[in-house]
Amino acid sequence: MASFKDFNFKLVVVEQLMYIDETLTPQFRLADLLKGKEGFGGDPWNYAHERGLSYQVMPEARAYFEALEIPGELLAGVEELCMDGGNQVYQECAPVWDGEDDLFDIGSLDDLALVPNLRRVLGSEFLGPELLEVLTARGIAAD
């Protein structure tokens, strides 16, 4: 199984496979994970806010996604990634987040080798010039 170095890059890959392609199953839902936790009334936003976890990745979500193994054959099928503040995976990780900070910024593209057939990255303007150069050097369209 693949080992990711950049957690936020992994989340973008998860977005594609789990929430867009629906090939990585089951779909993670923070509300399902929090069921049965003391003080959880069914709303992840309230739960996070009441615990001072606004604008942070919920520890339960981080643990889940860090441990999530993604088979190589699914990674090989990734041809496009989208970096957008409205990604479902971000809402599942940080229910109290508005997309206005760097919480989910990708710091490294060292994990590109894990998605060998990647051809296009949407929302690449959030990467910065150095990481954009990495994409273009590999022939990946940066839109």
Rank of each mutant, 00 (worst) to 15 (best):
A2E: 08
S3M: 08
F4K: 13
K5I: 10
K5H: 08
D6R: 10
F7W: 07
F9H: 13
L11R: 11
V12F: 02
V14M: 08
V14H: 04
E15S: 12
L17Y: 03
M18R: 13
Y19G: 07
I20E: 08
I20S: 04
D21I: 03
D21Y: 01
E22N: 14
T23K: 14
T25R: 11
T25D: 02
F28A: 08
R29M: 01
L30V: 05
A31K: 12
D32A: 10
D32M: 04
K37W: 01
E38H: 01
E38N: 08
G39E: 10
F40L: 08
G42Y: 01
P44V: 06
W45N: 11
N46D: 11
Y47K: 12
H49I: 05
H49R: 15
E50I: 01
R51C: 02
R51S: 07
Y55M: 15
Y55N: 15
M58K: 03
P59D: 10
E60W: 01
R62H: 08
Y64S: 07
A67W: 01
A67F: 01
G72M: 12
E73D: 15
E73H: 14
L74W: 02
L74C: 04
A76D: 12
A76K: 14
V78I: 14
V78C: 01
E79W: 01
E80T: 05
C82I: 07
M83T: 05
M83L: 14
D84C: 10
G85Y: 07
G86V: 07
G86P: 00
G86Y: 07
Q88A: 12
Q88K: 12
V89Y: 01
Y90R: 13
Y90T: 06
Y90I: 12
Q91C: 07
E92H: 01
E92N: 04
E92V: 03
C93S: 10
A94Q: 13
A94S: 15
P95T: 14
V96T: 06
W97S: 13
W97F: 13
D98V: 06
E100F: 03
D101L: 05
D102E: 14
D102F: 00
L103E: 12
L103S: 09
L103M: 11
D105S: 10
D105V: 05
D105E: 14
G107L: 09
S108M: 03
S108E: 12
L109A: 07
D110H: 03
L114M: 10
L114W: 00
V115D: 06
V115T: 15
P116D: 14
P116R: 14
P116M: 13
N117M: 02
R119P: 00
S124V: 02
S124I: 03
F126V: 13
L127G: 10
L127S: 11
P129E: 15
E130N: 06
L131G: 05
L132I: 02
L132H: 04
E133S: 09
L135M: 08
T136R: 06
G139K: 06
I140C: 10
A141W: 00
